[in-house]
């Protein structure tokens, strides 16, 4: 698909969403003025749309069936999600939800929608940052790579003790670097693009320079490379973890929303 056709397809879907939303509003308005139960229409339409939206996850589990490309599903998912927001407002009809069930249902919907928007924004914003920051890594391999980097640093520290007869690097390792290399650090700072913590650490390394002889300086240079490597590992971990984490909100809450929505529908039909 060329960029042009992709853009036209996106535009067509957007127009279709507006048309569908407009159609729903007209039907809802017509039902309201005729004193029919317009809420049944908007509620059923919303529930159907929620079920369709949930099918995207099912499609991911069935990659061996000819069920359209996931990218197409994604586009449909985004626009159907927008339409569901409109239907949700139509269904509420400007009223604050009353009662525990309705309030819970509304909160669940808002959480699902908000997490969806956040996820969409993250998936558009973070990949490019991960790409330009440093080496691209497989998420599951990051802990092993971090352990390897830590091991290399420890070896360099031992080497400095054995060959230079000076404890400067070892002392610094004990006071600052052991903590830094022990586990992922500054994850939030990475996500916010805040690099002060790394600069502070590197400043402290620079400050040590006056105590180092040439051999130690050589070892410290290698350690600085590893500090930067660890920094990229932490950045990749923070970014990739966030790209996965939002789904841990979006998907389970979606199932909760569906359960509550079905319960709401059953109660609405049986008690009215």
């Amino acid at each position: 698909m060329t960029p042009h056709s992709r853009r036209y397809r996106g535009l067509a879907l957007f127009l279709l969403t507006i048309l569908a939303g407009g159609g729903c509003w007209v039907v809802n308005y017509a039902l309201t003025v005729q004193l029919h139960r317009a809420k049944v229409f908007s509620g059923c339409a919303l529930l159907t749309l929620l079920l369709l939206l949930t099918l995207f996850n099912a499609r991911k589990k069935l990659p061996f069936l000819p069920l359209l490309k996931a990218a197409t599903w994604m586009r449909l998912h985004i626009f159907a999600g927008l339409l569901s927001g409109f239907l949700f407002c139509l269904h509420l009809h400007g009223r604050i939800p009353q009662g525990i069930l309705e309030a819970t249902l509304a909160v669940l919907y808002v959480v699902v929608a908000a997490s969806g928007f956040v996820g969409l924004a993250l998936s558009r914003w973070l990949p490019a940052r991960l790409t330009i920051h440093g080496e691209n890594l497989i998420y599951e391999r990051i802990p092993a790579l971090r352990a390897a980097v830590h091991h290399q640093v420890e070896e360099l520290v031992e080497q400095s003790l054995a060959t230079t007869h000076s404890s400067t690097i070892a002392d610094f390792y004990e006071s600052r670097l052991r903590w830094y290399f022990a586990r992922p650090r500054f994850l939030c700072a990475h996500l916010l693009g805040y690099r002060q913590s790394l600069f502070t650490l590197l400043e402290e390394v620079n400050a040590l320079d006056r105590f180092l002889d040439p051999a130690e300086r050589n070892i410290m240079g290698q350690i600085v490379v590893l500090i930067n490597t660890k920094n990229n590992l932490d950045f990749q971990l923070a970014g990739q973890r966030l790209l996965k984490l939002w789904l841990f909100v979006h998907i389970p809450v979606t199932y909760g929303l569906l359960l509550f929505a079905l319960l709401h529908a059953v109660l609405a039909f049986t008690l009215s």
């Binding site: 589990k61 990659p63 990949p127 991960l130 691209n136 990739q240």
Partner: peptide, 28 residues
């Protein structure tokens, strides 16, 4: 395209699902 890839590994999972639980490529 790494500027679009969210590293979700859906591609790897789909590959495994169509090859008896064995992914036949590495996303690397």
């Amino acid at each position: 395209d790494l500027n679009r890839c969210t590293r979700c590994d859906d591609c790897v999972r789909a590959c495994a699902a169509t090859h008896d639980n064995n992914p036949r490529f590495i996303r690397h």
